[in-house]
């Protein structure tokens, strides 16, 4: 009951925080309550501006190393989030992706800098940058399974609170700037899938049983809806907005 009460308390408080700094402090206390020392919450991007967030209390020396050596783009934990929708222990990362030498080095250096075992909750929201909330114990400390269920909920509620703050008017995004994802028609999506698979308008026309000119018009209409100039940008936007999945494009 104790950890569930911690989760309830956190969820209520997270819903009411008014600033990222408040959320940061709340999260630092909550992770200690359930048995962790460190946390890092954020979108998986290098450039932080506007609607994105990155907060945490990892050891400063480690964060300086991450910045100096540009480890973010190779961080094995963040990369593992791309292959898992479920929360995972860091010890399971080698089972989720095959580690490069640089990634093995990153894990080793993180441990030397004081970060022990950890648990990460990936956050995948269609139409938005991927993100995560990670929790870690001190190097050398044992991470049991006991706090993981509570960590899953705290990660989810903390991420939603951060989203709410950075998307609120005070957080830099006015209501009128709300992003509305353009909707493509089913036929437009069919055409975009084939473009993404490298098909010409003629090939797509044959596969869909329509004329090449109609395929062209569908693609042009889709480009207009997204406000993009090229077919490459169109494919990237539809993948990013989750209107297409990589499985639609890449056949294994």
């Amino acid at each position: 009951m104790g950890q569930f009460r911690d989760v309830q308390t956190f969820a209520r408080a997270a819903n009411e925080v008014c600033t990222i700094e408040e959320l940061s402090g709340l999260l630092a206390s909550a992770v200690r309550e359930i048995g962790f020392e460190y946390y890092a919450l954020g979108h998986h991007v290098n450039v932080v501006k506007g609607k994105l967030v990155q907060i945490g209390n990892y050891p400063e020396a480690w964060m300086a190393t991450v910045r100096a050596r540009e480890y973010i783009s190779d961080d094995p934990v963040l990369m593992a989030c791309q292959t898992s929708v479920a929360g995972f222990r860091w010890s399971a990362v080698p089972t989720l992706l095959s580690l490069s030498k640089r990634q093995e080095q990153i894990l080793l250096e993180a441990s030397r800098a004081g970060l022990g075992d950890g648990f990460t909750v990936p956050v995948h929201i269609p139409g938005e940058c991927a993100g995560s909330c990670s929790f870690a114990v001190r190097a050398g400390a044992l991470l049991s399974d006991a706090p993981l269920p509570a960590a899953q909920y705290i990660g989810c509620f903390a991420f939603e609170a951060a989203r709410r703050l950075v998307r609120s008017p005070a957080g830099g995004m006015r209501a009128r700037e709300r992003v509305v994802t353009p909707a493509l028609t089913s036929r437009q999506l069919d055409c975009v899938v084939l473009v993404a698979r490298g098909k010409s308008d003629g090939d797509a026309a044959q596969l869909l049983g329509i004329s090449a000119e109609t395929v062209h018009q569908h693609i042009e209409a889709a480009k207009r809806r997204f406000g993009v100039a090229t077919r490459t940008q169109l494919v990237v936007r539809t993948l990013f907005d989750n209107q297409l999945a990589f499985q639609d494009v890449i056949r294994r």
């Binding site: 950890q3 969820a11 929708v85 929360g87 995948h124 269920p149 899953q152 909920y153 509620f157 991420f159």
Partner: peptide
């Protein structure tokens, strides 16, 4: 649980009734 962030991001207020299993 992996669907929870998407549901909350869609504007559904969520209240847990127990820890996940």
């Amino acid at each position: 649980i992996h669907l929870l962030p998407e549901l909350m991001a869609s504007g559904w207020d969520a209240k847990p009734l127990g820890l996940p299993q």
